[in-house]
Design a protein around this nucleic acid. Structure first.
Lengths: 221, 221
DNA sequence: GGCTCATTCAATCATTCAATTGAGTGAGCT
DNA sequence: AGCTCACTCAATTGAATGATTGAATGAGCC
C-alpha cells in the first residue's frame, strides 16, 4: 500500500467491509449467524458447503469485522460482531429491493410479493399475543428454533405442517414466521394453511429483526 | 450460473450490490455524488483518476443499481440512484466505525475523534440559525457548494480561511461543515479557527445528511 | 502419550477484477 | 460534412479471489 491520506485509508477499510459482503455464501452465513451463534461444522452443513470453504469464508468475514469467533472445546463458535452488522445487512436488502430490477422480478415470481400476503407487524403480533388471539408458528428447522424464538410460538418445520394440521383450531388466526423477510418457508406455510381453509398470515421479517426490535426471545434448553 | 433457488438468486443480487461498494474509488464516487449529480469528467478530476477508469467504476456502480446516468448534451450526468444508497453507505460506515480496529486508529490519529471536537447536531444548528446566533461556513470547494448548501452559509474553502478571517466577528460562534462525517476539511477549519481565538464547532456529518434529514437546502445559480 | 475430531493452513488452478492503452461512438459546433 | 469533445468500449497485463485437495494444528479423550 502506498502512502494515503486519512480519507483514502478510511475508505479502503470500508471497502474491505463491503467486499466481505460481496459473496452470496457469505451473505448466507450472516443470515444464519443472525439466528444465533454456530460452529463451522453446523454452518457448513446448513449451506451445503465443504468445511474448508466455509471456514475460509468465515475468516474473511472475521477479518472484515463482521463476525467474531471463539473456541469452545473442539468447536469454534462464530457469531455476528454486533447489531450494526444486522443493520448493514438490512440496508443492503433495502437497496437491492428498491434499485435492482432483478430483485423485484424474483420477489414477484417466487414470493407473492405484497399481494395477498400482507404481513403482520411486530407490534400487532405482540398485541394479538397479549390477548391470546393468535397461534404463532415458527417454521424454521428445529435447531434454529432452539437458539431463540418468539415466546409461546411452536416449532412447525414445513415438512411437519400437514401432520400437525389437526391440532390447529379453525377459529384462531395463525401467524407464521421464519428467518427473515424473504425466507420462503413462511410464505409456503401461509399458502398451505390458507389452502386448507385456515386463516393465516406472515410476520413481517423474521426472528433476528424481532430480537433486534427488543422484543422478548425464548430459548430452548 | 447454475439453477438456483430463489434465496440464492436473491443473495447473488445482494452480493453484487455489496461487491460494487467494495472498492475505495467507488466509495469516493458515491461520496461525491452524494453532494450532487456530476459528469464523468468532473468526477474523474475530483478523484484524480483517468477518465476511462472513472467511467468503468461508474458503470459497475450503475450495473449494481447504486447510481443512475443520463445524457445531457455532450455530458453524461451521474447521480445516486436513491436515498437508500445513502442509508447503505451510512450503515457501512457505522459497521466500520464500531467493528474495525484500524478505522478507530485512523479516526483517533487524524481526527481528534470525540475529544474536544464535539459536533453541533443538525437540530441544534437549525435552532441557532433561527435566532441568528451563529455564522455557518461551508468549507467544501466552490463547485460542491454551488450544488447545494445550508441556507445562509457562506463558502469558505480551507485555502481561503485566513484571507476571510477578518470578516468573522469575535463574539459569534462559527459552525463549519463539509461533505460528510469524516471530511478532514471541517476538522481542520475548526482547529484553525480555535487557534486564532475564535469559538468554532463542527456540524455533525455533512451536507448529504443535512439534505437527507429533510432540512432546507439552497443552491447557487 | 497417542488417538480422534473440528478447524485451519498451504498449494493449486480457474476465474474475475483493476488499471492502462488506444480505438470507437455519439452529440454539438462550424 | 467534418471537427471537437466527452464518454465508452475492447484488449492487455498483473493481481486478487474462490474452490478444491490434502496436510497441519490444537483441544479433548482414552
Amino acid at each position: 500500500m502506498s502512502i494515503r491520506n486519512p480519507k483514502q485509508a478510511l475508505y479502503a477499510e470500508f471497502a474491505a467491509v463491503a467486499k466481505a459482503l460481496g459473496h452470496p455464501h457469505r451473505l448466507e452465513l450472516i443470515e444464519q449467524l443472525a439466528q444465533g451463534a454456530r460452529s463451522v461444522e453446523a454452518l457448513s452443513a446448513k449451506l451445503g458447503l465443504p468445511v474448508a470453504n466455509t471456514s475460509q469464508h468465515l475468516q474473511s468475514l472475521r477479518r472484515a469485522g463482521l463476525v467474531a469467533a471463539e473456541r469452545d472445546g473442539k468447536f469454534v463458535i462464530y457469531r455476528l460482531a454486533g447489531d450494526t452488522v444486522l443493520a448493514l445487512f438490512a440496508a443492503l436488502r433495502t437497496v437491492g429491493e428498491s434499485n435492482v430490477a432483478e430483485v423485484d422480478r424474483i420477489l414477484r415470481t417466487y414470493f407473492n410479493k405484497r399481494d395477498d400476503m400482507e404481513p403482520v407487524t411486530r407490534e400487532e403480533l405482540a398485541s394479538l399475543m397479549r390477548d391470546d388471539l393468535v397461534k404463532v408458528i415458527d417454521v424454521r428447522p428445529a435447531d434454529e428454533f432452539a437458539l431463540g424464538h418468539v415466546p409461546g410460538a411452536i416449532n412447525v418445520p414445513l415438512a411437519d405442517l400437514d401432520a400437525q394440521l389437526s391440532s390447529f383450531e379453525l377459529d384462531r388466526e395463525i401467524v407464521a414466521y421464519c428467518r427473515g423477510p424473504w425466507c420462503v418457508l413462511s410464505f409456503e406455510a401461509v399458502a398451505a394453511l390458507r389452502k386448507r381453509g385456515l386463516r393465516a398470515r406472515r410476520l413481517e421479517d423474521g426472528m433476528p429483526e424481532w430480537r433486534a426490535a427488543g422484543l422478548p426471545v425464548e430459548a430452548s434448553a
